[in-house]
């Protein structure tokens, strides 16, 4: 028992530090975050569970080992290809399993995710919890403090970045209706079909993006490049992801609160609201972001729950900020 507690506490420490860095300094929704973290710890169990279940199945019933003939066939050509395939499979399945925590929580309690950042934070916590579980297992196996240290800094950050990317795209998909109205009025062609396509594409993009980055990162440990280039690439992947995550978290657009019910009815006539979208869209395309920001702010005074006006306001605010930097 004591043998398990020490590695758990050691692995928990970096999880707390990373969590504090990304979450506590931004808001105080600690209780929800804690519950998400606890729930997300189960993902390591699910991941290991399916691997062990498969191992147990094929050791007892060898006829069920459908992968072995494929493996032998590929190994005849290239052992690296087989390594790449298995790494891709494990990285992708880990990402999908972590993503399901955000997905299930959102389906059960849609009001928990009302900003893109909420979604992103849930993904971040799922990654953190998964990595925490993985660190405990690795430490129990190897007992290496050096490995635990490296994993706590680099791999843990990686898991947070990858799973928060999926969750961010999931958030974009969740709020696709309002985002697409914004797109329509800023010159993009939008149809009912394209909204549904947008929704699916965002989820697929998120899964692909995080799986590909995760796979490349893991592959870097399987190859030897000159001058330790593989190590540099893996560190660059984490560093770039960390910077991107920080930028997304600091954007006003990511923080804006979406009203997630269709029951809401505005006080202004829809024709006037559409005229305002058109006016803001025109000015947005002309890069007159100050006009857009002010118009959106006035519209929000009259219609505080108008999601599209919030997008116009946040997007123009971010543009103004980037122009003044």
């Amino acid at each position: 028992m004591t043998n398990n507690i020490i590695p758990t506490l050691l692995a928990l420490l970096p999880a707390i530090l990373w969590g504090s860095y990304f979450l506590i300094r931004r808001d105080d929704n600690f209780k929800t975050y804690f519950l998400v973290f606890i729930l997300a710890c189960s993902t390591i169990g699910i991941t290991l569970g399916y691997q062990l279940a498969y191992q147990s199945l094929i050791s007892n019933y060898q006829n069920f080992d459908l992968i072995r003939p494929i493996k032998l066939y590929i190994l005849e050509y290239s052992s690296f290809l087989w390594t790449a395939i298995t790494i891709t499979w494990f990285a992708s399945s880990e990402e999908v399993i972590k993503f399901f925590i955000t997905y299930i929580l959102d389906k059960k309690n849609p009001e928990l995710i009302i900003t893109l950042q909420d979604s992103l934070k849930f993904g971040l916590l799922a990654g953190l919890a998964f990595s925490f579980g993985e660190n405990v297992i690795y430490f129990l196996r190897s007992g290496s403090f050096q490995e635990l240290g490296t994993r706590s800094i680099i791999t843990m950050c990686g898991h947070m970045v990858w799973s928060s990317f999926i969750a961010y795209f999931y958030g974009l998909s969740k709020f696709s209706k309002d985002i697409n109205i914004f797109k329509k009025f800023t010159g993009e062609k939008v149809t009912a079909k394209s909204i549904s396509k947008f929704r699916k594409n965002k989820i697929i993009t998120g899964i692909l993006l995080s799986s590909v980055i995760h796979t490349i990162y893991n592959l870097m440990f399987q190859i030897n490049l000159k001058n330790n280039l593989n190590t540099l690439i893996s560190i660059f992947i984490i560093f770039f992801g960390f910077i991107a995550l920080n930028i997304i978290m600091d954007q006003k657009y990511g923080k804006l609160k979406f009203i997630i019910t269709d029951k809401y009815k505005g006080r202004l006539d829809q024709k006037i609201i559409d005229t305002m979208y058109e006016y803001m869209g025109y000015n947005y395309m002309k890069k007159k972001y100050e006009i857009v920001f002010q118009t959106a702010s006035r519209l929000l005074k009259r219609e505080p729950d108008n999601n599209v006006a919030k997008i116009f306001q946040a997007k123009s605010y971010d543009k103004i900020q980037s122009q003044t930097k």
Binding site: L268, K271, I272, T275, M276, Q294, T295, R298, L299, R302
Partner: peptide, 11 residues
């Protein structure tokens, strides 16, 4: 009123 609203909204 609705026309005035539009002018008000764009300032």
């Amino acid at each position: 009123a609705n026309v005035k609203d539009e002018f008000n909204l764009i300032g």
